[in-house]
């Protein structure tokens, strides 16, 4: 069984993001770029399934410009068998991204597709669910545990009320939450080895997907800032201040 894993190149989660003064976007100039943290977890899960003998091949996929190859190489160094870059300069919205994944699903016939529960740039949290809908297959979102048996996955999901467990028939789409696993560190020799692993580049146009019904995004603004607070020097002063403000 093959597993496809989505790897989105995003600004590193540690970088403080600032909106450009002209409102045209956020300032990414020289910012550290990384694999979306949820995607690293997705890849780790796929690798563990392969190491447990439940999968035969792990393929990492990134949709974006050539720069994405950096994140794909990291994915290969972590242990993925091969990589596919769907080459486009345009930032695809989730519906188009899901259509790209569907085209690759049709080509590769995987038993599982694992993507992050959300990309931490646009915080959309849609691509996995949309792929499952277009593919007409099950989805298990926000996974914190995955158990695979034969053609069935038992997935525990992090939901508002607690932990929900569902059972889904394969093939299926799983989206990862943070507690699913802790991704491994990449070792230097693996980085060397990764250079020789196959990385296929497919121009977006070759997949002939429709890229319609886009949302128009026309302005970025910084969030409303909160007023500067005060410091108090004792618990008594804190309680007095809270009572003063009518909060206690």
């Amino acid at each position: 069984m093959k597993i496809l894993v989505g790897i989105k190149r995003v600004i590193d989660f540690n970088v403080r993001v600032r909106v450009k003064p002209d409102g045209s976007g956020v300032d990414l100039d020289g910012a550290k770029m990384s694999i979306n943290p949820f995607d690293e977890i997705a890849l780790e899960e796929a690798l563990r399934l392969r190491e447990a003998g439940k999968a035969s091949e792990v393929i990492v996929i990134s949709i974006g410009p050539n720069a994405c190859q950096q994140q794909l190489r990291t994915g290969l160094a972590m242990g993925a068998d091969r990589a596919i870059q769907v080459d486009t300069e345009e930032k695809l919205q989730p519906l188009a991204a899901a259509r790209v994944f569907l085209a690759l699903v049709e080509k590769e016939q995987p038993g599982l597709v694992i993507v992050g529960k959300q990309a931490i740039d646009d915080d959309n949290s849609q691509t996995g669910q949309m792929l499952a809908a277009l593919w007409n297959r099950p989805q298990a979102t926000f996974a914190s545990e995955v158990v695979l048996e034969d053609q069935v996955a038992r997935v525990t999901r992090e939901v508002d009320a607690g932990l929900e467990t569902i059972e889904i028939d394969l093939p299926a789409v799983i989206t990862t939450d943070l507690r699913l696993n802790e991704p491994r560190f990449v070792k230097l020799p693996d980085i060397m080895k990764a250079k020789r692993k196959p990385l296929e580049v497919i121009p977006l146009a070759d997949l002939a997907i429709t890229n319609d019904n886009k949302l128009t995004i026309d302005h970025y603004a910084p969030p409303a800032s909160r007023e500067k607070g005060i410091m108090v020097d004792s618990a008594e002063a804190l309680v007095a201040e809270l009572k003063n403000r009518g909060l206690l």
Binding site: I11, V17, R18, V19, V26, T216, P222
Partner: peptide, 17 residues
């Protein structure tokens, strides 16, 4: 909000959608 609330964007949806 996008970028963990570090930016707020304006989004509009075309008539036919």
């Amino acid at each position: 909000p996008v970028y963990a609330g570090n930016a707020i964007i304006d989004v509009s949806v075309a008539e036919e959608m």
